[in-house]
């Protein structure tokens, strides 16, 4: 035994023979505990780093002015840069279109002369309603929930979206009668 594991130091008078070994193990466990703790702290800090203190993303729900400000048949681009939404008013009401192309996520441009949304990346085209009619886009632009607040302002909720190919444009909220 003693050949394999010799004591670290000679036992002092009055001390048990294996005190050196015992203190070695307590130091070892302290080292391991502190190492694990530091790793956990570093891991937590890294995880915390993934959630920034300030998010420069606009809120999902926003107010988009009064419906009377919109003109019939005109695509309103005021909220394109800030919220990625087009507001369209036609004869019977108002809807909010997403500005994300359903092909690969570029931002199409509204060409008023041609009365269509046209994507610069692969040439997908959408009618003013959002229906895809040319190019590779597989489905129409998505619409966001639109409603009227108590103060008479439009409220767009980007948390709820409506897809035409799933028949969701008929659901309440996809279209605001006005």
């Amino acid at each position: 035994m003693s050949k394999v594991n010799p004591p670290l130091r000679a036992a002092k008078p009055g001390e048990p023979a294996d005190a050196g070994r015992r203190s070695f193990f307590s130091w070892m466990s302290l080292a391991w505990v502190s190492f694990t703790a530091s790793m956990l702290a570093a891991g937590t800090a890294t995880a915390r780093f993934m959630f920034p203190n300030v998010l420069f993303e606009p809120p999902l729900t926003f107010r988009a002015g009064r419906p009377e400000e919109l003109q019939v048949g005109i695509v309103d681009e005021r909220f394109k840069d800030s919220n990625q939404v087009w507001l369209v008013r036609e004869g019977g009401g108002i809807y909010a279109l997403s500005t994300t192309c359903t092909h690969l996520g570029c931002t199409p441009n509204w060409l008023s002369a041609e009365q269509k949304f046209k994507c610069p990346c692969h040439g997908s085209g959408f009618y003013i309603t959002g229906i895809n009619f040319e190019g590779p886009a597989p489905r129409p632009l998505e619409r966001f929930a639109i409603s009227l607040a108590d103060d008479g302002q439009l409220v767009i909720d980007k948390g709820r979206k409506f897809q035409q190919e799933k028949g969701q444009w008929e659901l309440p909220g996809a279209y605001l009668e006005f």
Binding site: K80, D81, T107, N109, C119, P120
Partner: peptide, 10 residues
């Protein structure tokens, strides 16, 4: 870069 403005052509 601006997510709201895709260069044309991209």
């Amino acid at each position: 870069a601006n997510p709201a403005a895709t260069p044309n052509p991209s």
